[in-house]
Structures are given as structure tokens and as C-alpha cells.
Design a protein around this nucleic acid. Sequence first.
DNA 1: GAAGGCGCG
Length: 721
Amino acid sequence: MPSMAPLSSGNKNGDGNGNVPGRGNGVPFGGHWGPPESTSATPSAANEAVGKRKATTLLPQTRVTKRQALLNQRRALPIASVESELVNHVKKNETLVVIGETGSGKTTQLPQFLHSAGFCKGGMMVAITQPRRVAAITVATRVAEEMGVEVGQEVGYSIRFEDCTSPSTQLKYMTDGMLLREALLDPLLSRYSLVVIDEAHERTIHTDVLFGLLKGVQKRRQAASTATKSSKKKAATTGVALKDLQNLLTTSKTPLEKKNSALKLVIHLEEIPGDILLFLTGQEEIESMERLLKERASHLSPKVPKLLVVPIYAALPSEQQMRVFQPAPDGTRKVILATNIAETSLTIPGIRYVIDPGLVKARAYNPRTGVESLEVVPVSKAQARQRSGRAGRERPGKCFRLYTEDLYRKLEDSTVPEIKRCNLANVVLQLKAFGIDDVLGFDFMDKPSRIAIVKSLEHLYSLGALTDEGKLSDPIGTRMARFPLEPMYAKAMLISCEMGCSEEMLATVSMMSVDSVFYAPRDKLQEANNARNRFISADGDHITLINVLRHYIQEAEEAGAGAGAGEAEDTSSNSNSNENKKVFKRIRSWCTANFINARSLKRAVDIQKQIRGYVEGMGLTIISCGDDMLSFRRCLAASFFLNAARRQLDGTYRALASGQSVAIHPSSVLFGQKPDCVVFNELVRTNRSYIRNITRVDSLWLPELAPHYYAAQALNTPCQS
DNA sequence: GAAGGCGCG
């Protein structure tokens, strides 16, 4: 897979005011500083350093002069002037919050300062966490280059499916989720002298759990040893540097008006040439805007620059995603229609104009009903700044905000931390596995609501992961916590091993753990549906997805991959041999022909392989039920009994656990069918409440297979149609 | 009757 996202902090456009204030204990996010918006930034040492870097890396040079050039660049970074001050603060304080702008050198330089200061002596490491995998890889690679070592040696990285470290590794870049997994095996994180939590302002769920956990680790390590320094945390807010950026504020109010304004703005922008980045909320909005823009652009007078409209969102197949990086032909203006993927996850060079309608689709969670939803909500001020910062990275740019200055002032300062907006079942299971029995009393930086935690405890108890005393059960709970899966899927794996269909369940949980493998653009919906019919099972989506995975692996084997599709792609990406390229190409075209998202499916294969290893590591065996899909459906009922729904007299469905009315999602193969009773994997609310990934079951199986949950309920009355 | 913001393990 090509890596998509140049690291944001790799783009050096700081304004050169490189103050890096040290702060005392426990004052995270004590302030935010940086240049005010709409101000011109003066050229600075940091900006000049960018030019030098580009020039030096392009010229063929000897290794020695290249290192010298790298060293000069390092010295020009704002953070370089405060190295000794920073190191002293780290030595003096248990916890340090470092705030500096994008490009000031926090991510790449601070770890090297710590390395020079001796924090990696005696086999100890410094961990630096990142919210995203690509960032962990690119930063580690960059730092290794600066230190003149091979990545994986003194400087390494660790992400899911890829451990690029060795016994000599001293600086270890890793995803925050990966450090959490490590903490399960080594609760004192005894191999690390320091932990640096980068991009802490993003407040991912993993970052927030780490904060609470590290606070406990500090206390226990202090108690265990007063002689050694304990772990340190660094929280970094990335200031957004705006170069000559102006904000044009209009008065649109409703999303529809904003859409029209955005449309008009793109068409009528009489600004000097430069690409436009328009933020929209989702795939559907992007697809309709794409149609509208193309239609209008075809009627434009020849005097106006032509428009090249390029969509980008996470579910788009990667070949199409790559189009945003291709420069527009001369005389053509590129217009990128993006979701918030373009906010942090990928940086598109050459953007001169950003149009920000001020809306974003955000996850919301109602703990009372257990329903997750995606709601279109106003962005926060921090998000608005982040968006405007995507323009003018290389030269002056503009951001057009489609809302009034008054509305901007009313926006929240920052986005609500993720941990307050989602289902906590997995977090609570992990905390229990860390030995934290009092989850309600856990030291969260922002505490989720009591009801959200209690609901998660109830959920885990229903799955048998907790004892009556609320402790992690053994072996069920301890085994569940070891899987990198949602608790319900982890339990499903364990049950399937007893019910003789673990091979099928392994395929199911792998497919459930990735974004939908079916790619269905609006304009080719019929074609996509026809393609899906090749795999369809009348029993529902789970078996349909198993069929997809089986066909894929068979295709890969026929293409000459030997041991399976995962192996095929692994080899092809690591090798340049023509044979592997051919295999890779054939699998790709099979995916395209079947409207299958190759990236998602590849990921499912990787997960399948990883989970298989975990199951076998527990001494359990993976066995297939062959064609006995009845057994498998019974196993689905036994596993997903909390997510069962029955058809009502009026044709709607009632979710049995919450009692709420739901409908079968149009993406389900059972859409349009009228099964009496189903189990499902997701309950999402959009215009109405939909259930997704559904299998037809017999309602009598529920009290039979989950008597502890259904014994009291009368399910033996047949549903009338 | 008609639809999937972004990540991480």
C-alpha cells in the first residue's frame, strides 16, 4: 500500500517564535499561544530552513555532507535554542507539558535531546506515541536519518502488524494504542525511562486512557524506587501557523445555504490561480457536490479556468485517493472535496484556498440506549483553525469561512474529547485487565458520564467478562482482554471455539473489524449490487462476508500466491519481482471488478492472521463447520444475543435489549426481506435507527443459548406476519 | 423503505 499522508509536522512553516515554555507538574493545556489568525507571518529562520532542506535532499551528495546539512537544519529549528532548558525541566519535573507550534521541532528534536541527555542508558527506552500509524513511521524514519542510523536500530517504531525495533532500539515511536497493548503485558512500563505523548491535544480515546494510566504508573514506580526517575509526559498542542491568511466571513446559516455558497464560491472565485480545498461532511455530500460542480463547470465561459474536481474520503479506494496528489494541468484549477480526512490525516500540497462551511460529522453516543450515531455538528474553534491552516502552507493563502464572525465566537474552543462521545466497553475491559477494579474512580482527564461507564460494566457482565464482584473473570475476561477486538467479538471467538465454527467466526470478526469492503458509489449502485450478488447468502451479511473472504483467498491462491492472500500482498509489497507484481495486479483487478475495497479486505486478512495467532496462543483450536451454516448461525445467536431484533406486526423491528424501534439498513443483504428474528452487529442512527450486518436466526435459539439474559423474557410466541 | 466523519489495537 502506498502511504498517503505526509506528516503534518514535516511541513515546516512555523513563524520562528520558537518559545517552548516549560511548565510545572500537572498543568496540561494551560494555555495556547501562537500567531493570531489573519496576521502576516514574517519570513523566519524556520521558513528558510525549509528551502534549504528541499534543496539539499534533491541534490546528490555524499553521506557526510548530507548529515551536515541535516545538522544545520536541526540547529535552525526553534526548539534548538532551548535544548538544555528543556532537558533540565524534564529532569526536575515528573510531568512536563511542552507547547510549541507546528514545525518547531517537538516531535523530532525533543526525543533526540533526551537521548543525548542520557535517558536511554542502561537499556532503557524513550517511547514517543502518535495517534496515527503513518506518523509513527515517517517520524521514526526522519529521526533515524538525522541520527545517521538505520530505522529499526537505535530509532524504531512499533505499530499494529509491524514491529520495526530491535534490542538496540532506544527511541521508540509508536501508536498510542500500541503502548496501551504493551502496558497490558508490562503494567509498570519498566523498559521505558520516559513516555512522550505527542499530539495530546487531539484527545484520542487512547491518549486519554494513557494519561490516566501513566499517572498511576508514576505513583507505583515512585513507590517501587525512589532512586530512579519515573515516566514523564509531554503534551503538545500544535499551534497553527497562518501565513497571510484572511478569513472571509459570510452570513449563511443552514447547511443547504452553505452548500450553495460553497458551490458559488468555487465557480466564481476570481482569485489568482491555486487549488481549492472544500470541507464537506461525508461521502454523500461529496458525491452530490461533485456532480453539481462538474455540471456547472461544463457551462463556464472559456475565460474562466477549468475545474478539476477531485473527491477524497476514507472509504474511497486508494487508487482514487491518490488522485488528490496529482497536480492539475496548466490553466486548470484543482478543487478537492474532502471530509475531515484532510484536516489531520493527510496533507495535500499546493492548497491556496480553503473553504470551510463550519460543519463536521462527529460520533455521538447515547449511553441510555447504547446507540451510536454520526451527527452533523458545528466545528470547534480549534478545528476551524486547523482547517484554515491547510491553506497557504507553501505560499500565502486564504480561508473562506461560510459563517459569521459572531457564530465563530460562539463555537466551542475545542472538540469534546472522544472518550465522552463513544461506547466504553473496550476501555473498561482494558482498565479491568490493568487491575483497575474501581473504573468509576479512575483518574480520567475528562471523566465520561457515570451512566456510560455503568452501561459498559453491565455489557461486560452480560458477556461473562466480569464476575459478580465486578472483577475480570478468568479465563473468559482475561482472554477477551487480550484480543485486539471489541469485547463482543472477542467473546464470539471464544464461544465459536466451543461450538465448532471458529474458522467462520474468525472470518466474521475480521470482516466486522474493518470498514465495509463493498464499495458502492452512487452512480454505479446497480453495477455494485450485481457484483455483490456473486457472494450473497440468503441467511444474511455475515455469511455473505465470509464468502467474499473465501473468494478473495481462492483468487489469490489461483494467482499464485501460495499460502494465502495475506502472504501474497505482503510479499508483493516487499519485493519487486515481476511475478509478485503480477499476483498483486490480478488481485487488484479482481477487487475492482467486484466493487471490493482492496485496502479494507487486505486489512481484514491481516487481522484474521493476527487473531488466529492469539487464539492458537491460548491453546484453542480453529475449526471449520464446513457447510453446516446452521451451526454457525446458532453460534452468531449465542455470541450476539445482546443485539437481537424481532419483526413487529407493523413490519418494523424491535431491538430486544433496548426495546427501541429499528429498521434494516439498506446496505444489508436482508434489506427487503422480512426475517422474523435477526442478530446484528451495529445499531446506527441517521435519519432513523438502522441495524447493520445482520443474520437471520430462530427466535427460540435466544433463550436456549443465552438463558442468563433471555430466560425471563417471553420469546416463544411466534411473530405474526 | 433507501445509506458509511476520522483513527487505533
